[in-house]
């Protein structure tokens, strides 16, 4: 399936995605970030119907108010010299960063999803039990190194403690009311 056919088929099934499916190059199709509820349905369609059945990886990003997740997929039976990558994105608010595991469809997604948990603090529902990855045992809770507000200079690797400076106290205005 070419990039143009991929774009066409997704928009035909989901007309609301008109303008949100972009062909970045001959071999790359990007879909704008969707909320987790809409993403699940689209992922099921591209896997089950369009046969984007090979999972390369998922990338987590801190985009300010939200966490974003980029899924890289391809078709196993694609032509041997013209493989299109489909890049789907979903987002979840940082205040409640819940997404659903895709490991029921892509078995090799588990370790990548564990990384989202450790490094970004995502909550991945239905993630099969297993060892955490990649942070060490004893890593302090609530410390997510790939979040933008986590600064490496405040982390002590010997004691595994995160010591940000105390917020500066607000100084009362000098002179008072005039």
């Amino acid at each position: 399936m070419t990039a143009a056919q991929t774009q066409e088929q997704i928009i035909a099934k989901y007309p609301s995605l008109e303008g949100k499916v972009h062909i970045a190059s001959d071999l790359r199709v990007w879909v704008d970030a969707l909320p987790a509820s809409e993403f699940e349905d689209l992922l099921a369609y591209v896997h089950d119907e369009m046969k984007y059945d090979f999972f390369h990886l998922v990338i987590g990003l801190d985009s300010g108010e939200n966490l974003e997740f980029v899924y890289i997929l391809s078709q196993w039976e694609a032509p041997a010299d013209n493989e299109v990558l489909l890049l789907l994105k979903q987002y979840a608010p940082k205040s409640n960063p819940v997404i659903k595991s895709v490991s029921d469809r892509y078995a090799n997604a588990t370790w990548h999803e564990r990384e989202l948990v450790d490094l970004l603090g995502a909550i991945v529902e239905d993630l099969p039990p297993g060892l955490s990855y990649p942070l060490p045992d004893g890593w302090p809770e609530g410390n997510y190194p790939l979040r933008k507000d986590w600064k490496v200079e405040f982390f002590d690797p010997l004691t595994l403690t995160y010591n940000p400076p105390a917020p500066a106290e607000e100084k009362p205005e000098e002179g008072g009311a005039k």
Binding site: P134, L146, V152
Partner: peptide, 10 residues
């Protein structure tokens, strides 16, 4: 695995 994660991406 994960014993050698060095935080290069960050």
């Amino acid at each position: 695995v994960g014993y050698n994660h060095r935080g290069l991406e960050k």
